[in-house]
Design a binder for these strands. Structure first.
Length: 465
RNA sequence: GUUCCCUUCGUCUAGUGGCCUAGGACUCAUGGUUUUCAUCCAUGCAACACGGGUUCGACUCCCGUAGGGAACGCCA
């Protein structure tokens, strides 16, 4: 019986989740849902110096808000023993060798090769050290790391990428790369692939910056699988693992999305009033487009129609304006009975003589792009800005006061008759009197919302100003 | 520098040799609806990076050029 499908998202707790990482997480989740698999979140926290306190909690909070659920969590920091075992095995089976080259020497070598127009890869200097020399250096307590001994006859490393199709790299294009740090701990490539294999991950979907890590990791996995007596989970065939590399997400200036070029955090989107469903929808629409041009999709629909194989392979720009539109469309589809609850967090700072009812929300709802626009649109209703009306404006306001009635058909005609104002000349002064703005709510609705006493009060203030 | 990858309207994309005088969506502009604004509706602007091949025919295949990206870390 085949293994069950497992995808993974492997964030480092070094900062907040940005859109790029988020998309990787979401796509992994989406695919796991689509093919009936599970999603593992593996926290890559081996570099303790770079770990940020609280970052992990924040990541999980963001994932939860978006509805990206995981089946379990692992921490690389708790798996050091396994890595150590594997390293011992690799040493014993002769797949790695100690390298005593200093950072300075390595850097010198790199520069020299660069100057010669060659790729700056490790020369393999320590690969051919005699056992005696190695013993001597170790006895002298010279610091060293372990490098993978890439088989010279390995040839081409290949895999069929979920997104980019067949990929191939010549094994000897890589220098023997480092697997352990001076302190003996595992580097990223080693820890990452050991975990993926050991945890039975079946689909490794990650950013395209990992493309050239993939052949390295395949090489590592092959060496690990050959260790005599290694635990069986690590002998799993790397060829059965599927890799997929997601194209980069760019900011409007076509550079990699980062704080510098205005990348927003998940929390910022939440505060702005972007719905999770919209963010997911927008994220899916980058590098991929839905069949039949139907772009507004619920998460359920996304699961149905999304195909990772149909993603484009070039980096693409994430457009805020499209997200805004997508969100406005999802907002329009929000069921009536959920509106109040959704709006609630955005009504906090809104104090005034009127209670914000569902009916008032309905008035502004169709024109919203994000929920944070609600207070902006409602503010004039609660606390209109002071006005400097012209004499004519005052005359119009006074006319309504004189013959006050809330009946639109009647007052509108009366005011018009006594002042001669109609159209904009009639409505603009009055709307300014009631809301401080020329545009916005229809007078009919305003009268309804504000009520007689508030209208009279504002008209009087207006005339007196 | 080397290796690998990428290149269709401003943006996201459709397009797998004739259906393409290149389609859709967002943005923008104009008009209509609305007492205003917004919504909504309609219309419009706008692209195959460049140069060579191959072919009866190329956005689509091949080669080159240019531009962009990633990798080449005892970071992940």
């Amino acid at each position: 019986m085949g293994m069950s499908t497992l995808l993974r998202f492997a964030p480092s707790p070094t900062g907040e989740l940005h859109l790029g990482n988020l998309r990787t997480a979401f796509l992994n989740w989406l695919i796991s849902q689509k093919i009936g698999g599970k999603l593992l979140v593996r926290v890559d926290d081996t570099d303790t110096k770079r770990n940020l306190p609280g970052a992990e909690e924040k990541i999980f909070r963001d994932l939860k808000w978006l509805g990206i659920h995981h089946s379990h969590i692992e921490h690389q920091s708790k798996r050091g023993d396994l890595y150590t075992d594997v390293i011992k095995g690799l040493v014993a089976s002769g797949s790695v060798y100690p390298c005593f080259c200093s950072t300075e020497l390595l850097e010198e070598e790199r520069q020299a090769m660069l100057k010669m127009g060659k790729p700056p890869r490790y020369s393999g200097r320590c690969r051919n050290l005699s056992p005696e020399d190695v013993q001597k250096k170790i006895a002298a307590k010279e610091p060293f790391c372990y490098r993978l001994k890439i088989p010279h006859d390995r040839g081409t490393v290949k895999w069929d990428d979920l997104i980019r199709g067949p990929q191939s790299f010549e094994a000897d294009h890589f220098g023997d790369f480092v697997l352990t740090r001076e302190d003996g701990s595992a580097t990223y490539n080693l820890a990452s692939i050991i975990d993926d294999v050991d945890m039975n991950v079946t689909h490794i979907v990650r950013g395209e910056d990992h493309v050239s890590n993939t052949p390295r990791q395949i090489l590592i996995a092959e060496a690990v699988a050959k260790i005599p007596g290694i635990k069986t989970s690590l002998t799993r065939k790397i060829a059965e693992v599927r890799f997929g590399h997601i194209p980069l997400l760019l900011a409007a200036d076509k550079t990699k999305l980062s704080k510098r070029n205005g990348a927003k955090t998940v929390e910022e989107y939440q505060k702005e009033g972007v719905l999770p469903v919209s963010l997911k929808n927008a994220l899916a629409l980058v590098s991929w487009n839905p069949p039949e041009g139907k772009e507004i999709l619920t998460t359920e629909e996304l699961i149905q129609v999304f195909e990772i194989g149909k993603m484009s392979t070039h980096p693409s720009v994430f457009a805020e304006s499209k997200l805004q539109w997508i969100n406005s469309e999802h907002l329009k589809r929000v069921p009536q009975n959920e509106k109040v609850q959704l709006a609630e967090p955005f009504l906090k700072d809104l104090a005034g003589p009127i209670k914000i009812t569902e009916k008032i929300l309905d008035l502004v709802w169709p024109e919203l792009h994000v929920l944070s626009e609600i207070p902006l649109k409602l503010k004039p209703l609660l606390a209109p800005e002071a006005q400097t009306p012209t004499e004519f404006d005052k005359k119009v306001a006074q006319a309504w006061l004189d013959c006050f009635t809330a009946d639109f058909g009647i007052w509108q005609k009366d005011v018009q008759n006594s002042t001669g104002a109609k159209g904009k000349n009639l409505y603009f002064p009055l709307r300014r009197a009631l809301t401080g703005q020329e545009h916005g709510f229809e007078m009919r609705d305003l009268v309804d919302i504000l009520g007689e006493s508030l209208i009279k009060e504002r008209l009087k203030n207006y005339v007196a100003s």
